[in-house]
């Protein structure tokens, strides 16, 4: 058969002018018996696909897709984390040689070399041998890259308490907020406490106030004098406001505890 420019077609169609016999592609170079793609081989592929699908659906049913609270750009306590397959890049930028003055190394040079190398791998590793032993450099570099990606991902993920993270960032159902913003104590809560204890008393930098065991007097005392890691003088206002604040915290805490 003619190739390239020598090929003649009927009109502007893709039918070749010279009739070619429809001999199947010769697989004699490969040992063993061949098998028809349709339906023999495809059936096996689809059986594998069906098993895979069942496993996948089990995963989906067992683990509902996570959803955190609505994006709140003012939430300073939030520690961002990318999806797991970007963790290795995220971790790489923590190293000294990849941050600060060397940021360009971390964000462009290293990933660029790695992914660029991956892209043109066939031209770098252009020997005739295909077995891994015949091309130790290429295989070695790939193993090295793989090991470092796995190590970076592991060291990034190992410090994270995933369950606590999910617990802390649970979405608040809209319209089910227990916070009464018209309560006389809310203004004081908003200005003095909300930053650490959260808009729904759910906690953040400070512990949750839902279901607190402190009495009203104790809360008034803590708000002024602090407790544990909480510094003193968080609340600055009149005694009346202080009392309203304590009332607000106790009422809201009880309402929230009831809801759960």
């Amino acid at each position: 058969m003619h190739k390239g420019k020598g090929m003649k077609f009927v009109g502007d169609s893709r039918i070749t002018a010279d009739r070619t016999s429809k001999v199947p592609k010769d697989y004699s170079e490969y040992p063993g018996r061949t098998e028809a793609f349709w339906p023999n081989f495809l059936l096996k592929e689809w059986l594998a696909g069906a098993v895979f699908l069942v496993g996948f659906l089990c995963l989906v049913l067992a683990h509902p897709s996570p959803l955190e609270g609505m994006a709140d750009p003012t939430d300073a306590a939030y520690i961002p984390l990318p999806d797991w397959y970007f963790l290795f890049l995220y971790e790489l930028l923590k190293y000294q040689f990849a941050s600060g003055d060397w940021t360009i190394l971390g964000i462009i040079v290293i990933p660029g070399l790695a992914f660029g190398g991956l892209l043109i791998a066939p031209f770098l590793d252009n020997g005739p041998g295909r077995r891994p032993r015949q091309r130790p450099i290429a295989v070695g570099m790939m193993l090295l890259a793989l090991a470092s990606v796995i190590w970076l991902t592991y060291s990034s993920a190992a410090h994270v308490d995933w369950e606590e993270r999910a617990e802390q960032n649970k979405p608040i159902p809209p319209g089910e907020s227990v916070v009464d913003q018209n309560h006389p104590g809310f203004a004081a809560y908003e200005s003095s406490c909300l930053g650490c204890h959260g808009g729904e008393l759910e906690g953040g930098a400070g512990p949750t106030l839902v279901g607190t065991e402190h009495s009203k007097e104790e809360i008034m005392d803590i708000a002024v004098n602090g407790i544990g890691a909480m510094p003193a003088d968080q609340f600055q206002g009149s005694d009346e406001e202080l009392e309203q604040l304590a009332d607000f915290i106790i009422e809201t805490s009880e309402a929230a505890a009831e809801q759960e």
């Binding site: 199947p24 063993g32 018996r33 028809a36 793609f37 081989f41 096996k44």
Partner: peptide, 10 residues
Amino acid sequence: ADHEVPEHVN
């Protein structure tokens, strides 16, 4: 669809 699949991938 109508082609042969070699044994070594099966």
